[in-house]
Every structure is written in C-alpha cells, then in structure tokens.
C-alpha cells in the first residue's frame, strides 16, 4: 500500500510538472494567438474585431505571469482548454472530444489485439523452438522494422482505388451523419480495416519477437527443468511456469504502448486521413494552433502517466517480488 501511495505521489508530481511546462512553453514562443489569427485572416479583420479577440483570449488586461498561471489552473479544473484557432471558435475540448473516440477505438483495439496475438504467437514459437515456427522469425524481424506509414502507403497503393472495397481515406463515408446505427458503424468499420491491419502487422511482430526471446531465456531456468521433472503436463509447464514468467518484462512495454494509444499512431492517421487525435495534432502543428497543441499534449501526457500507473498495478498483481510486505 505504501508503495502504491509513493507511486501515486510521483505521478501527481509528474502531472503537475507536465502541466506547468505546458503552460510556459507557448509563452516562451514569440508572438501571441491574436497575431497569428490576424495573419490567418490576412488583414480582413477590423480593428474592433481585433480588440474583441484580445478580450476573448484574455490578453487585454496586464496580468502577471503568476496570475495567468493561476487562471490557467482554474480553467483546467473547469475542463476548459481554450479555443482552437483552426476551428475557431470551437473550444479545444470539443475538438479533442470529437477526435479521441476515433483514435481510442482504432489504435486501442489494434494495440490490444496485437499484444494478445503477438504474445500468444511468441509463447508458441519460444516453446517450440527449433520447429517450423522458427521460420516466422525472419518475417517478423522484417515486418517489425517496417515503419507503419510505409506499410500504409503500400496498402493504399495496392488495395484501394475505384471499385475497391477498401476506402483510402477518412473514418466513414462522407455524407453520413455520425450516429450509432448499423450503416454508420459499418462504414466506420470498413474505413478502419486498412489502418488497423497496417498497425497490427507492423506492431505485432515486435511482441512476437520479444515474447519468443523471453520464452527461450526462461525455458533455460532451473524451475522449468524442475517442472518437467515433476511430471507436470506440457501445457501446465509452458503456461504456468514458462509463459507466466516470460510475460513480466512485456507488461511494461505493453503499458507504454497503451499510453501511446491516445497519441495515436500519428503517421498512420495522416496517411489514411483518419479523423483521430494524431491527424488533429498534425493539423494543429501545420496551423500553429497552440491551444489545440497544448490540449493534445496534455491529454497524451496524462494518458501515458495513467498507463504507467496501470503497469505498476499489473506488476504488483503479477510479480509477488514487487510486493514488499506480506
């Protein structure tokens, strides 16, 4: 319990540090949001409009940096992340709220599936070392070294086009209204197949490789020999003795990848113009949309931290050696 509280304190501190950095970074950059908006509208804004923009962004009053910092926190706690420039005057929280489900659904599901499948295959390949399954290894090494986006480009070039079942971009059929009905969900599923397959193919190989190597290492441990000598069934030795121990190092890797779900696989979303957070981030960078960037970074930071906390919890549950007392 003490261990957990310590970790929790550490994470709270990290969140505070991340938010503080998030606050100061844009203020270190020369210029202000109104000027970038003016540049955006190329002088079509009247003096009144500019004034009201300054009021809107709260830049009219001379506030100290400390005062701004306090205001920023107050805003954050209300869930207010400011207004987006690109989608002005939509609040950043709405923009993120629209993009987040797409990314979480696409990358989240593929990450889970890829971890489960990859680990399973790795256990099998590691346990049956020397069988035909070893033939998979060069293939997985090759696949894991391919960048996602390249695979995505190849998939688009080969599989999409007029008359093809696979759409080349977007998250759903243009013209459909997002709703929870079969037509929309079917269309969303159809659009997610290629990006999902792309992520799956190139991320799964990494799990296969690392799990297989851990299995081979663990299989040489004394307790595996003992388990064999005890006359236990092959399956019990493989799963409860070998795989159970081989899984431990992979857990932290999995937690990290959970944290990056929210960040999205940026390049895949760009290649497929998928309406997720990664694509949004790309657009925000292109448009110098600082409030949106800040908001997305905040979400990514928090989710990475939450994933790490989950990894700590998983470790506590899976490895008794990390539980200090008891």
């Amino acid at each position: 319990m003490r261990f957990l509280l310590q970790r929790l304190a550490f994470y709270l501190f990290t969140v505070w540090a991340a938010i503080t950095i998030n606050f100061f970074l844009p203020r270190l950059i020369p210029g202000d949001p109104v000027r970038s908006l003016i540049a955006r509208y190329q002088g079509q804004l009247s003096a009144d409009a500019i004034d009201s923009l300054y009021v809107l962004f709260g830049l009219d009053q001379e506030r100290s940096l400390w005062g701004q910092y306090v205001d920023y926190w107050a805003q954050l706690l209300r869930g207010d992340l400011g207004l987006s420039f690109t989608f002005f005057p939509t609040p950043v929280s709405d923009v993120i709220g629209n993009a987040l489900p797409w990314t979480v659904a696409l990358v989240g599901i593929t990450t889970l599936v890829s971890f489960a499948l990859g680990t399973g295959l790795g256990v099998l390949a590691g346990w049956r070392r020397g069988s035909w399954l070893d033939g998979l290894l060069p293939v997985t090494t090759f696949l894991s070294s391919i960048p996602y986006f390249w695979l995505g480009l190849v998939a688009i070039a080969l599989l999409t086009g007029p008359g093809s079942f696979f759409p080349s971009s977007g998250g759903y059929e243009p013209g459909l209204v997002p709703a929870f009905d079969t037509i929309f969900l079917g269309s969303a599923l159809q659009h997610s197949l290629l990006p999902a397959a792309t992520i799956l193919v190139s991320s799964m190989s990494g799990w296969v490789l690392s799990m297989r190597n851990m299995m081979v290492t663990v299989a040489a441990e004394d307790y595996i020999t003992v388990a064999h000598a005890k006359g236990l069934g092959e399956r019990r030795v493989a799963l409860h003795y070998a795989a159970r121990n081989a899984l431990l190092p992979n857990i932290s890797g999995f937690a990290l990848s959970l944290g990056f779900i929210v960040g999205g696989t940026l390049l895949v979303e760009i290649v497929f113009s998928y309406p997720g957070l990664g694509f949004q981030l790309f657009q925000a960078v292109g448009a110098k949309d600082y409030p949106l960037l800040q908001g997305i970074f905040l979400i990514i930071t928090v989710s990475v931290l939450v994933a790490n906390l989950l990894a700590d919890l998983a470790y506590l549950a899976l490895d008794p050696r990390t539980r200090k007392e008891g």
Binding site: Y223, R244, P320, R321
Partner: peptide, 11 residues
Amino acid sequence: FQGAMNSLNPV
C-alpha cells in the same frame, strides 16, 4: 537440483 535459488518458480 543444483540451484537452490532458482529451482522454485518465483511467481
């Protein structure tokens, strides 16, 4: 076995 330390499954 030889390895008193490693003959038991740690988990």
